[in-house]
Design a protein around this nucleic acid. Sequence first.
DNA 1: CGCGCCCTCCCCCGGCCGGGGGATTCGGTC
DNA 2: GACCGAATCCCCCGGCCGGGGGAGGGCGCG
Lengths: 224, 224
Amino acid sequence: MTLRILLADDHAMFRSGLRAVLETQPDLECVAEVEDGRAAVAETARLLPDLAILDVRMPKQDGLAAAETILAQPGNTTRVLMLTTYDSDEYVYRALSAGVSGFLLKSLPPEEMVSAIRVAARGDAVVDPSVTRRLAARFAAALAPAARNPDVAPGIDRLTAREREVLLLVAAGHTNAEIGARLFVGDETVKTHVSRILAKLGLRDRVHAALYAYRYGLARPDGD
Amino acid sequence: MTLRILLADDHAMFRSGLRAVLETQPDLECVAEVEDGRAAVAETARLLPDLAILDVRMPKQDGLAAAETILAQPGNTTRVLMLTTYDSDEYVYRALSAGVSGFLLKSLPPEEMVSAIRVAARGDAVVDPSVTRRLAARFAAALAPAARNPDVAPGIDRLTAREREVLLLVAAGHTNAEIGARLFVGDETVKTHVSRILAKLGLRDRVHAALYAYRYGLARPDGD
DNA sequence: CGCGCCCTCCCCCGGCCGGGGGATTCGGTC
DNA sequence: GACCGAATCCCCCGGCCGGGGGAGGGCGCG
């Protein structure tokens, strides 16, 4: 089974270079090359590739916006790998929020690029080490205040780790299908999680679940 | 300049295997081997290695606690690489909060282990793809609100007084029928109001309407 | 008066949601 | 090995929800 890949970058030189790298691998097939974000979205919808490799900077629509559009499609199965020349905090946060499967620098050696593509295609995520470092620091900083939160949410300890994860996504306003796509599981599974959450916390529906999360500071309304 | 490394794992077999891998690299030197967390902390303090490779599960004190102790030392210069057999969310969060430079599965191929060691030693971070995936999901759900901007509710002025009233009740978690009962109108009427609210504000469903209300301070999660 | 806006109610319909089952796999525990 | 919890996926079904219509009545304004 070959991996069908879409390539989006405004530099023809870079595209052909990457394409050449892909062609060294018999199981990787480049099904489309586009040079702007809008075309990336359109071609992804048309060809349904397994993976879309998007440059952050592109004309008409940048790669971040394109990634958000693609990953927000109901029933989307295309994973997204973001590429950038220089890393930047905002880009990373926005990309991860959108649910991309990878965030890499263009300076990555070809063989590592290939392995990253395979990782992303199977649903795992790969982030450049220099980016991971700051991500980890940010994560640690944001986790510290959460640890010393006074008002403890009643019954939250009865939830499993996965259920808490789903609860936050519900609170962010996502549908079951979207949550499934973001967590790389079926929407049926998400339904089960949501049902258990509601039962364990004694809540009526997902709106109340969202209120619960906000009331006890587990989530913020502006954190989509 | 050689990298001085401390190895902590309770399985002698694994230690010798990893040590053998390290010895294939002229610039990597294993300065100590220990089999429990307490010894890892003590030897790190004594030998001041550049890198400590800690298994999560160890007798006396686990790798997480050891990492926290080591990294919390004032003036510490030893980076920490965590290893685990099976990944688990809590482990990762706790490890990253402590400030480790890497979190890898023991199943990692030797050559990748070596490259990860170099990444960690230079201060960047490396996280196993399967772990990164869930980390990204968690990040998207919980951390994104870090970069936010408060505003005046856009489009709120386009709502009629009645619609604003309904919006608050939706945000409080009421169903259309409940809102109808409270306002002494039919639930059909409430449906119309809700539809207009969603259309005017460009929102998708009542959950997003609730988020909108909280985000712009129109309502509070604890104010029913 | 005619017009527009708001509130109210109604019908159809497709889709998401939540409850009720059940099933499997995988770890961990006893 | 037996048992249990967690996570994943599956089916059925009734109900709420949201979109797209339509259709009255009240109220203010030119």
